[in-house]
Design a protein around this nucleic acid. Structure first.
Lengths: 233, 233
DNA sequence: ACGATAATCAATTTATCGCTTGAATGATGT
DNA sequence: ACATCATTCAAGCGATAAATTGATTATCGT
């Protein structure tokens, strides 16, 4: 062998790290954690150009973090392995522990106030059974209909005020979104607390909830056509 | 704020990943997992030039993965957080699961044969109490004297044949080295098995063993002067 | 076969990274 | 103060990566 096996191994490990070293690819992985998607839908969601998105996806594929299959004209990408989410989560944890910059950003999201600890998925499951919480899914409607926690309301940040009337006073509100990388839930909690409501985040997001084997409700009344139209929006 | 908080956060997470995306820095972190060291010693161990090594260390410091303190003329670097080792370990696990290239390299290390599963640290502790295993520390002598598993013999790959006479036939041999990133233990196991001996690797290496709170023997008879001389070698 | 659609490829520009070389800084001992 | 040693800084080179643009390849419906 021309180079040492040790160097060759390190090069492979570094390849995985390098693949995670671009914000665009982290966004794509976060999206793919919601479910398999085609290139155009991913480009739309992440704000990348289609060509750029395609190239990032190919880098993810080279590192074997995603796999693709053809489905008609579309190429559908999906995560190879849920382990990748663990890796991203650890990346986030190390960043939060070590980088002061991250703390500043998160404090800014909380509106300067002290944000309460998130509720664990296990605890939320218990509270849901009791009926002692209101759950809000702070993701775009198309992601909500593709799967959400049973009983959760759906409202984006801009729509929050529209669902205020349907909230029961003094009932704690739990907000969740895509996962630990997403900031919607942070912002929703800050907004609700500004209004004097009891609100907390869920630890993780829908992919983690699903990964735990907990129930996910898919809106069945949505026809396949409507889904397609939504994906195009 | 000029850019979105979400983009800012992703940029920070990507910084951590980017910092792990160079083989040289992975080597440095592996070395630092053995204990705190100065720049020159690290350069020596990793084969990097001193200036290059220094710059890599500063990148690691920018990502807050290491911290440094001045000690006389020398600047001593150490890991900020053992969590970083978890991150590197997960990087390795994802690489092993997903990249065929890694399998090929590891198979090459095992000499083409099927390598046995490594023994867990817990199991080794039990077997050590029983006295039913011979443990070999496959690291350079200076790292051995700085701390090793009690009862372990020390031999580098080149010195393996010298300790063969002191091995008890039919007693299983456990080899370990720096940690999951190091290949010495793989190679030692392959060499010993070629000779018809029962040999396995320990899961992880000395840093992981120490992290578990298990006993580590430091060769006390080595004077401070000798240690200094060894560090310079 | 033809046009339409989804994705990829190819070529380019700009920016960053890794490494080298040589000079500068900081602490120590005489 | 001066020489010495460990480390860092600064400039420069070649290589690699991200995003844009325009062309090309697959698949589908008619």
């Amino acid at each position: 062998m021309s180079i040492s096996p040790k160097a060759a191994l390190l090069e492979e490990y570094a390849l995985i790290a390098r693949t995670l070293a671009a914000p665009a690819r982290l966004m794509l992985l976060e999206q793919l954690a919601q479910g398999a998607r085609g290139v155009e839908a991913l480009a739309e969601k992440t704000g990348l150009s289609v060509a750029n998105c395609s190239q990032h996806l190919q880098q993810l594929r080279r590192a074997a973090l995603v796999t693709s299959r053809r489905e008609g004209k579309a190429v559908i990408y999906r995560l190879t392995d849920a382990r990748t989410l663990e890796l991203m989560d650890l990346l986030r944890i190390v960043a939060e522990r070590n980088l002061a910059q991250v703390d500043r950003i998160l404090q800014g999201l909380a509106g300067g106030e002290e944000a309460p600890e998130p509720i664990s998925r296990e605890q939320l499951a218990v509270r849901l059974d009791e009926g002692s919480v209101t759950v809000i899914d702070v993701r775009p409607a198309d992601e909500y209909v593709a799967g959400h926690i049973p009983g959760a309301l759906n409202a984006t940040l801009a729509e929050l005020d529209q669902i205020l009337p349907s909230l029961v006073p003094d009932k704690e509100i739990i907000a969740y979104c895509r996962g630990p990388y997403s900031v919607y839930a942070h912002q929703a909690v800050a907004a609700l607390r500004k209004l004097g409501l009891q609100a907390r985040r869920l630890e993780g997001g829908l992919p983690e909830w699903r990964e735990d084997g907990r129930p996910v409700l898919i809106d069945a009344q949505i026809s396949a056509d409507a889904l397609k139209r939504i994906q195009l929006t």
